[in-house]
Design a protein around this nucleic acid. Structure first.
Lengths: 195, 195
DNA sequence: TCTACGCTAGATAGAACGCTCTAGCGTATC
DNA sequence: GATACGCTAGAGCGTTCTATCTAGCGTAGA
């Protein structure tokens, strides 16, 4: 049951951090939500809140990548894959009452000037996302350098739109950003086929 | 000297919130940084931290808009204006040790599910930014609807890239996002001139 | 059956939090 | 010179925070 407890802590942490941020979430709130005793938290995370935060970033970031990759895998091509990605994100954010968008963006911004271990965890997660998406663009025939630029731009559109959608309580920014990303990618693929 | 004290509180709050977020910044830290007595804070902001936070969002958001508009005014056309906007942001983020990017994004994400007055303040600031940029695209001949989409997409690119740049300690995401925004706008203007 | 140890369980310490309170300073007005 | 009031000044309230500590449960291996 040990592994189960640790997973419940990480799962509850992920959800709370995503919605309220790192500083806005107390350890007591986490153990209550996870339904685990307080002592267990420090048994599994002797490094305290910071260690828990860093690990939660990696786990939540990894799950988000898995979800994204599953959507991209299920789509016939990269263009409709990216379109599905943004559409799915828009539906999720709506369905959660504009609470669930990026699992780590809030925490990443909060800690990037105050906790080096957590900042680094976020940086690694982001780099992983870049690499995943870059690889898919390369597979579609785009050069590695250009593919990385497209990946960074696509994910920037998504993350920025998440901020606006949560604050304005509207899925429109995510939808607009999705259309922009699709346009950018189609333009690139079009240039490719012209040669 | 009253106005000066209030301004110093808002200025210090803006800087601290931008770097550490809302929950991560204590009132004691604010009054220390602003060099004002604790009592003054509650004299000017009887609504407490939440009122201060909402006002800081509006003030900081307004200043950021002013800065952006000044850059756009100084540029010969909208395309180089947007380019200068992203370049300036990239230099600022570098110069601050990857601390100073968007003045309200961190707070907006933190509070959008926990404080309605602050969420609303952030939403109004963002809508103001959208309207400012939309107007400039309209002035360049783009239709209002399409201009709004371009404004939302451009600012999404900027905000998303800010997250990545702060976390990875590299200005590259902002630079890539800037190139993407410029490309989008040029494409739109090109279509316009083809008719 | 006994022992070891991973894990549960929660009380509690010590510090920091937001906020309230009273006292008094300084200036403008009569 | 006296009065009124905006503002300064900071002590201290109650709460909540992270983190530590000791005690005991439950299971696996000797």
């Amino acid at each position: 049951m040990a592994a189960d407890t640790k997973e419940r802590i990480l799962s509850a942490s992920g959800e709370l951090f995503r919605r309220q941020g790192y500083e806005g979430t107390g350890l007591k709130q986490i153990v209550t939500a996870a339904n685990v005793p307080f002592g267990s938290l420090y048994h599994f995370f002797p490094g305290g809140k910071e260690q828990l935060g860093a690990q939660a970033i990696r786990v939540s970031g990894g799950q988000f990548a898995q979800l994204g990759n599953a959507i991209l895998d299920a789509s016939p091509d990269i263009v409709s894959g990216v379109r599905d990605l943004f559409t799915g994100a828009a539906r999720t954010i709506e369905a959660s009452g504009y609470a669930d968008a990026c699992p780590i963006a809030t925490v990443a911004l909060e800690v990037s000037s105050s906790s080096e271990p957590m900042r680094q965890a976020a940086a690694e997660v982001f780099e992983g996302w870049f690499a995943d998406l870059q690889q898919r663009f390369v597979a579609a025939g785009i050069s590695p350098d250009r593919a990385r630029e497209l990946a960074v731009a696509t994910l920037s559109l998504l993350e920025g739109a998440f901020i606006f959608s949560r604050a304005t309580r509207s899925a429109q920014p995510v939808e607009i950003a999705g259309a922009g990303a699709v346009q950018m990618i189609e333009l690139e693929l079009g240039r490719l086929s012209e040669r």
